[in-house]
Design a protein around this nucleic acid. Structure first.
Length: 353
DNA sequence: TCTGGGGTCCTTCAACAT
DNA sequence: TCTGATGTTGAAGGACCC
């Protein structure tokens, strides 16, 4: 059973804020941007009691919980706290897959007493950072992930695959990662509104309605079957920079200045990581929420603003947005030869090919 | 009530190569 | 030489995740 653990810091951003502002403890806290179109990034558990949740428009959150304290996100602080957490985890377990700042999978294979080891990690993280975590342990990543979610905050749930099936049989299929709102609605229409029903559904029905890949995957997930391994290294595939305007922008000059700014920001970030990509793209979201992307692939990789910005502007002009624009973004993908972190071999010349 | 920003992966289609 | 099957790339859209 105990092959993989999923570890998730409770209300991560809000908890980091509470640690440096203890006077706010016990109050509902919402980490969110300001501005008319902001959404909630993280809500403390006090705020969640009012029905406030992540990804909810901040205006609505404040209507649900007018007393909430709004804090703008400070990603530098969250990154620093995250590094401390995962450094402690890494001291106990060598195979770790970090997913975002606040969660990750631990490969427990080879540990003599995996549960006790994870208990130690929980205690150590709390002692060193003041943060609490929730843990799920199971035979695969899917069980571990759902188990860590089941009893937060400060959860510690160990489940076999069969126990997971039984425990969540009456729950919505949306409980399972990878099954989002769209798929839940389609399953509902088929009368499959619980994981138990989905697990018992004939596979032909699912593959017929969802295609061979997604159909089979849904059947497997409903049974909590998952073969994925803990991936300790992952390479970036793309990087982007985008912005939503406070009010929709119809003026082309304003749009073009925004694209230029985004291109400059993106090129700067790529440069700092020494990443170069061959595909330059833009994203345009209109006032009616239609989203359009356009991309062009070059014959060489770049992270130069003087290359990225003109192409992005060209793509914008070619698309010629037919309605006022709510969001603009610039993206670079198709990274070439990711920079090798190892230092140059001693006494050996590397031939540039 | 009116929906952020940063990503990944999948699917479909077209063009081109083998 | 033509045709069909198959693979690779790129573009675009969409679902989903934190």
């Amino acid at each position: 059973v105990a092959r993989i653990a999923h570890l998730d810091v409770d209300a991560f951003y809000a908890s980091v804020e509470l640690l440096r502002r203890p006077e706010l403890r016990g109050k509902p806290v919402i980490v969110s941007g300001t501005g008319p179109r902001a959404v909630v990034t993280t809500a403390s558990y006090e705020a969640r009691r009012f029905g406030v949740g992540s990804a909810m428009p901040t205006a609505r959150a404040l209507r649900l919980c007018p007393a909430a304290v709004l804090i703008p996100p400070d990603f530098d602080a969250y990154r620093a706290a995250s590094r401390r957490v995962w450094q402690i985890v890494g001291a106990h377990v060598d195979r770790v897959e970090q997913v975002g700042l606040d969660e990750g999978y631990l490969d427990l294979d080879g540990l003599v007493s995996p549960r006790a080891a994870v208990r130690r990690i929980v205690v150590d993280v709390h002692a060193a950072t003041g943060l609490t975590v929730s843990v799920g342990i199971g035979p695969n990543k899917l069980v571990a992930k759902v188990a860590s979610d089941a009893e937060k905050p400060r959860g510690f749930v160990v489940l076999s695959r069969e126990e997971a099936c039984a425990r969540f049989a009456e729950a919505s299929p949306g409980l399972v990662p990878g099954i989002g709102p769209k798929t839940v609605a389609r399953l509902d229409a088929l009368g499959l509104s619980t994981l138990g029903a989905l697990a018992g559904a004939p596979e032909e029905l699912l593959t017929e309605r969802f295609g061979p890949n997604l159909g089979r995957e849904l059947a497997r997930r409903a049974r909590f079957e998952h073969a994925g391994t803990v991936q300790t290294v992952r390479e970036a595939k793309s990087q982007s920079s985008e912005t939503t305007f406070d009010t929709d922008v119809g003026d082309r000059g304003t749009q073009e200045r925004a694209i230029a700014d985004l291109a400059r920001d993106l090129a700067g970030r790529l440069g700092r990581r020494d990443l170069r990509g061959r595909t330059i793209g833009i994203k345009v979201r209109l006032d009616d929420w239609t989203t359009v992307t356009r991309a062009r692939t070059l014959d060489h990789a770049t992270n130069d603003v003087e290359v990225i910005a003109p192409i992005a502007l060209d793509l914008l002009r070619a698309y010629d947005p037919p309605r006022p624009v709510r969001l603009l973004g610039v993206r670079v993908a198709g990274f070439e030869r990711p920079p090798e972190p190892r230092d140059a071999p001693h006494g050996q010349l590397q031939l540039a090919l």
